[in-house]
């Protein structure tokens, strides 16, 4: 009998580790570098006003966003995004747990929730915009109204699918209600909850951008549309790049958190696959 073989770290000769690192970097950076080069060369030969070369975009990016406008436009946007996403996750998990545990409530709300989820979130923007005006509250409401559903519905499903034997175990050891929630129901539902959170984050980002683009006079989305309308193509591209970076950053943060929260889940999956 041995403990986990997964816990045993295998040590390799150092030069091979180096080789792998260099090879890995080559694979990681090779294609992006090639693509940027092709784009740069193409942009310097073909004269398309809409596709400036990456160097020009880089310049515009730095001059536009590094400085006070980062505080003025980017930070408030990110704050709205964070508040909206956090509210969606909190509301989704709390409501989803209640609805998932109380069967009649679930039956009562299920068709309604299916419908509400199916509404394309951006159509809510004009509705909320006219009720709340171009305020922060409007943007946050829009984000919550759009990104709540994936968290909510996934939590309901996850809570309902709690394993029967695990539930019986909790009952047989007379776990209290709070203990069951904290140590059984929520962890058991966490893979589904994280799936919902991932979808919610991408919807939240989309809604943040659009609500700022069309119903705001500040923020990242507003600036990008402003540049576009004034034919400041380089700056507009810089904005698009910044949005891309925010998307990537969000994805990285999410996957770090997910890997930590669902360490056990990936572990069991790996064992089952082995």
């Amino acid at each position: 009998m041995t403990t986990s073989s997964g816990a045993v770290a295998r040590s390799r000769p150092r030069h091979r580790t180096w080789q792998r690192l260099v090879g890995g970097a080559g694979f990681a950076l090779g294609l992006p570098v090639v693509l940027l080069l092709v784009w740069g060369i193409w942009a310097s030969f073909a004269v398309s006003p809409f596709f400036p070369s990456p160097l020009v975009i880089g310049d515009a990016f730095v001059s536009t966003w590094v400085g006070p406008s980062f505080l003025q436009d980017v930070l408030p946007s990110l704050a709205r995004l964070a508040v909206g996403a956090a509210l969606s996750i909190l509301l989704g998990v709390v409501l989803g747990t209640v609805i998932g545990l109380v069967r009649w409530l679930g039956d009562l709300l299920e068709p309604l929730l299916e419908f509400l989820r199916a509404i394309p979130p951006p159509v809510l923007i004009p509705i909320v915009a006219v009720l709340l005006g171009p305020t922060d509250a409007m943007k946050i409401t829009v984000i919550v109204a759009g990104s709540l559903w994936p968290v909510l519905l996934n939590t309901i499903d996850g809570v309902r699918a709690t394993d029967a034997v695990m539930t019986e175990t909790a009952r047989s050891f007379s776990l209290t209600r709070t203990e069951r929630l904290r140590y059984l129901v929520l962890p058991a539902a966490s893979p589904r909850i994280m799936t919902g959170v991932r979808q919610a984050l991408s919807i939240a980002l989309i809604l943040m951008v659009i609500s700022e683009m069309f119903f705001s006079s500040s923020g990242l989305g507003y600036r990008i549309v402003y540049f576009q309308r004034n034919y400041l193509i380089d700056q507009m591209w810089g904005g698009i790049v910044l949005l891309g970076l925010i998307g990537v950053l969000l994805a990285v943060v999410f996957s770090l958190v997910e890997r930590r929260v669902l360490r056990w889940y990936h572990g069991t999956k790996e064992v089952a696959r082995a």
């Binding site: 034997v165 175990t169 776990l175 203990e179 059984l184 056990w264 069991t268």
Partner: peptide, 28 residues
């Protein structure tokens, strides 16, 4: 009364360590 189930894989909670699993029913 304490129970030991046949399906150990489903009666232990995979998100808790061995210690956490043994400790859980003792908490209250």
């Amino acid at each position: 009364m304490a129970l030991v189930f046949q399906e150990y894989g489903r009666s232990l909670y995979p998100w808790l360590t061995v210690r956490g699993n043994v400790e859980l029913p003792l908490k209250h």
